[in-house]
Write a protein that binds this DNA or RNA. Sequence first.
DNA 1: CTGAAAGCGCTTACAG
DNA 2: CTGAAAGCGCTTACAG
Lengths: 331, 331
Amino acid sequence: MTTQKIVAKKANVSVATVSRYINDVGYISPEVKGRIKKAIKELNYKPNLVARSLKLRSSKTIALVFPHINNPFFIELVRRAEEVAYHNGYNIILCITENKLDREKLYLDVLKGKLIDGYIIIPVTSEDSRLYEVLEGENVVYVDRSTGLEDEILIKLDNIQGVRLAIEHLLDLNHRKIGVINVPLNITTGYERFEGYKAVLAENGIELQMEYIKYADYPIESAYEKTRQILRLKNKPTAILTMSGLTTLGALKAIKDSGLSIPGDLSIVSFDDFESSELLNPPITAVAQPAAEFGIRAAEILVNLINGRKPRPRRLILEPKLIIRESCQKL
Amino acid sequence: MTTQKIVAKKANVSVATVSRYINDVGYISPEVKGRIKKAIKELNYKPNLVARSLKLRSSKTIALVFPHINNPFFIELVRRAEEVAYHNGYNIILCITENKLDREKLYLDVLKGKLIDGYIIIPVTSEDSRLYEVLEGENVVYVDRSTGLEDEILIKLDNIQGVRLAIEHLLDLNHRKIGVINVPLNITTGYERFEGYKAVLAENGIELQMEYIKYADYPIESAYEKTRQILRLKNKPTAILTMSGLTTLGALKAIKDSGLSIPGDLSIVSFDDFESSELLNPPITAVAQPAAEFGIRAAEILVNLINGRKPRPRRLILEPKLIIRESCQKL
DNA sequence: CTGAAAGCGCTTACAG
DNA sequence: CTGAAAGCGCTTACAG
């Protein structure tokens, strides 16, 4: 492996000067510059970035710690964050926790040793903020779900509003029996969406039916199963709201396998829009999250943070929008 | 930051002994062990993995260099590879080239400096193997597309067979006018699929119609546009074969916007199956790649390679299978 | 069984 | 404008 030392010898200068040349810092006489340039080229020298990291205490890499990447919302986030990172000279380490606490913990431990410059994290749980205290002093942007940490920097959706858009749309179509396949309550997305659901129903004088409320997330089979349970109820809902893209697919399979048709037998709104929503049978009405914005903003805020600029305010709340297609019937 | 030096001082031993303790190498008296353990705990010491990397010339990380991650096939690959990497103690650096040569080159250059242990690469092009010569001496597994490098380690699909499955299915249904939205010819996937297309048509005495052959890949809009072009032909095909999951979605949108119905007006087979294929309108007949196997095998082979075990043979060819649904009509 | 020392390949204050 | 030297935090051959 070619090192600065070898380059220095060949160019007849010291390693210090080679280093200065590489980093374009301080003045170097044109003649010396030429010799170094030539030596680097001839030796095909590439700096050892690990050595540099050790010295500079920065690895020029950002960690993405995500529950899954099957979820289309998360994929778009990864993609956009990677893009912004690339343009700022950072590499991305992708860590998939599978929503498991022990996996997340192991990842964070290892990453701490790798001089990671910053973290973009979708936390596994919102119920134990102490898990994230290990990252104190690090640059971290939490996304989608809150950790409950007092001073976390967070980008999240206005979940209440998202649910409101969906439920009010169904109410406008005269639905009163609205089931929900929520994501788990131990994350703020699930919790807040449940709160929204309760609130909007209450405002409209509709009593909460606990049997209409199910929880599922990943894998897709769990949504399938929970949907089948709802569909077996004697007093079935006339509409359901699914709380993630993957959940929607699971629910759609269940509805299909039950021999029910949408929206004739059952209306459905999907929280999360995705590439194929409009091509499904029928095209699905969806609450769309600004996924691209999530990813871009997360990475931008993190890069700023790394450079010492704190976002103000610390929380960024993004707005969902309703895309009406053909999966809801007027009663 | 706590270092071995600090731990050593607290435990009243040398750093060498602390290092041996951490790495569980050589004999250490139980008493000393106890002191070190205690010191590590009290100081909450975490080893600096960058320093270790520098010394050991291994970063315990694997780079994934991929064109996109929108493509469902690629996502599954990333996911599985990450999973295998995790279980073997490796982190994943994800690099998205967007199928651009300059981006790929920049990534490879940077990664070379990061003491990456191994690479899983879907190369941007199959037409210039010199681009990948920079990785000589590195552990690399190429996936999906060949680089043309004589001694590359490669996992690929039997593309010819995949096309054969699709086309013969259509021929069985009496289609003779079969269009194709292929991926570009400068990658072996596109090239080989085109070869397969030609071969099967020739075997069946069908003349090649150049106007039936279009190229598109990413983004989805290009498939949309090319499909519309095909649909504007006076002598339209009765069926089309799309060569990637994303292409399929683009084509479906185009067909929908043209007011044509599937399979009544046009049959379609998708090369690549994906989560929502069966829920589309209609459910789409697809040539499925064993995406999970791609990801798992790629990572396994790479980990073996890192540990000095070369795969024999160097090329692994995986088989596609046809999943018949409802998107093809008998003529 | 444990320690002193060298070295991995960089960067950077300090001198001159 | 350039160099000698220290140091980032590890690991490991060599001694004892």
